[in-house]
Design a protein around this nucleic acid. Structure first.
Lengths: 340, 340
DNA sequence: TCACACCGTGGAACCGCTTCCACAGGACAT
DNA sequence: ATGTCCTGTGGAAGCGGTTCCACGGTGTGA
């Protein structure tokens, strides 16, 4: 691989001049520029990114710290990231988090510009101390699906989303509505499900419908867990007529459980989820759609802007819209279902 | 951020000695080592990866070049990559390919050790010239779902897989079997579907069943495309009684089409796919399972081995097993279906 | 004509690390 | 006592760029 010195020698100029041509500096005469470019072409020269990085103090890299990056919603968000990154001069580095140790590992070492030019923290609340260190180190950060002081973020209003889902069910006449939230022992401390629960309770209260606490459950996103919860709910003396699951993957588990018990969705049980992952459209799941793709895309754009402009952009919380997508897993309360 | 020189000064030693401590060189006395380590701890020093990379000539990075990395099967493979990479001192860089231009872009610039220490080329046949350049440049490469001379790869026997799927249908009594292959105009030139077609034709020939060419179709992996093909097949005067789709995503489109026409799977049409993506288990799709996760995992291990040992490992084609997973979308040929 | 500004350029310093080379000093054999 | 070997160490060179500084040459104004 040719070096800048060889190019310089061949073009009969100094290394500095080659660098200037490379970086489109205006202070190079046309004739010199042409000579240098010819030399570059002849030698097939491409600058060493490591050397550039060392010299410039950055590394043409965008880091995405994301839990379980192969699960449906992170994947959708990453699609957006990749789309926004297309053509940009940055490599996409994925830091896959599957435990607190992972998270701390990454967050502990990413507080420097030579590790990543910018950071996208996705779907988990970063420990304030870590975040502060990273920001102080001058690494631009954008949060997705999380908020923190002093950092831009892309979010949805999960409380409103919880309300929307619940109101949809209430509007269909349901009153015995079960709720399935996230795993309370989740070590990474996801909070969206909690906010959605808040919205659920608000909507119920506003409608004057009491929440039956025996219908409020929590579980991980593993399908079997949702299946088990749903089976248990349906076997109760007074089963719910509808379920609001705070994640589509859970809602799909619920549907599976209903079927395995020989019951039908939505006749025996209405099911609404949250996210609108790709699978949901296929299955016909009614859900609260959040713009996953767009969240990744927007966050990446914000980050790229922060990298491009030398002026620090204003910190802002970007809120993306939610929307109930009615498909075929919710329907009116069955005649006999629950109290009138 | 502290530099190695500051650490050296604080410990009262030379920079070289600090570097030796950092790299666990045996030729440092215990007392010196302790002093240096103390200085490192006090300053919270961590070496600059860019500088290390420049000096050592590599960059602690593993590149994965993969088409449509957010679609189901690449995602499964990437899960395996991430799993194998856990704990390894390498960052995972994703090069998402969605066009020939992308591919050529990446392959054109990745032929140097300072871009990526090792490369995983996933699910597309790399142009021989590009591959040769990369290998010549001394960048270790492992292919997944593709083969090429002089490079290790992880594959399945697609011809055998095509045969297995077809034999499963033949065994159920089907004779009018439709085949849905990949898009022949796919610019990236995927070949697995072609091999599966070969297996399909072999199995049909072996069984003495003639292939009705009007039942052989090709299309992209977009769901609507498979839906359209399936509808067209079913509207024929003599519709097939079974379909072998060379990808699960296509098979799912077929099922959707059958349903939308008011017919039933498998009573009216048996459907078998290929891959066994996560969704398939959920839907109950019968399919030829290929170990996607394992393919990524194994390939990554091979690559890491190649990076660790200074001795070049032997080139080898690793063949992973295939298996027909019978679920609920295939059944016996209906009484009236096709010629006896 | 001279002073001054400015443009384009070469070259050195620097980014932060690794590694090679040279060398001091102690252990050992002669 | 002298020579040899070995161990541990400091320091310089090098990795391949960017950027700053100095300088020669040309153009402009007085």
């Amino acid at each position: 691989m040719a070096t800048i010195a060889e190019v310089a020698a061949r073009a009969g100029v100094g290394a500095g001049t080659v660098s200037r041509v490379l970086n489109h500096s205006p202070k190079v005469s046309e004739t010199t520029r042409a000579r240098v470019q010819a030399a570059i072409a002849e030698l097939g020269y491409r600058p060493n990114p490591l050397a550039q990085g060392l010299s410039r103090g950055r590394c043409r890299t965008l880091g995405v710290v994301v839990p379980y990056f192969t699960t449906p919603s992170p994947v959708e968000r990453l699609r957006g990231v990749a789309a926004a990154l297309d053509g940009a001069q940055h490599d996409l580095v994925i830091f896959n988090v599957e435990s607190v140790a992972h998270r701390d590992d990454f967050l502990g070492t990413l507080d420097r510009r030579d590790r990543a030019d910018g950071l996208l923290l996705m779907s988990f609340p970063p420990p304030p101390a870590d975040l502060a260190r990273i920001v102080t180190a001058g690494v631009p950060v954008v949060l997705v699906d999380a908020v923190a002081e002093g950092v831009s973020s892309v979010v949805v209003d999960d409380v409103a989303g919880g309300r929307m889902a619940t109101e949809h069910l209430l509007g269909l006449g349901h009153e015995r509505i079960a709720f399935i939230g996230g795993d309370p022992d989740e070590p990474l401390g996801f909070t969206s499900a909690d906010d959605r629960e808040l919205g659920f309770r608000q909507a119920m209260a506003d409608a004057g419908v009491e929440v039956d606490e025996s219908l409020v459950r929590y579980g991980t996103h593993a399908r079997e867990v949702a299946v088990a919860i749903a089976k248990d709910l349906l076997r109760q003396a007074a089963p719910p007529t509808a379920v609001f699951a705070t994640a589509d993957v859970q809602a799909l588990g619920v549907i599976e459980a209903v079927r395995s018990l020989g019951r039908h969705v939505p006749d025996d049980l209405s099911v609404i989820g949250f996210d609108d992952i790709e699978l949901s459209a296929y299955v016909g799941l009614t859900t609260v759609r959040q713009p996953l793709f767009e969240s990744g895309q927007l966050a990446t754009r914000l980050l790229l802007e922060a990298l491009a402009g030398d002026t620090t952009p204003t910190v802002h919380v970007h809120e993306l819209p939610l929307e109930v997508v009615v498909r075929s897993t919710t329907g009116p309360r069955p005649p006999g279902g629950g109290p009138t």
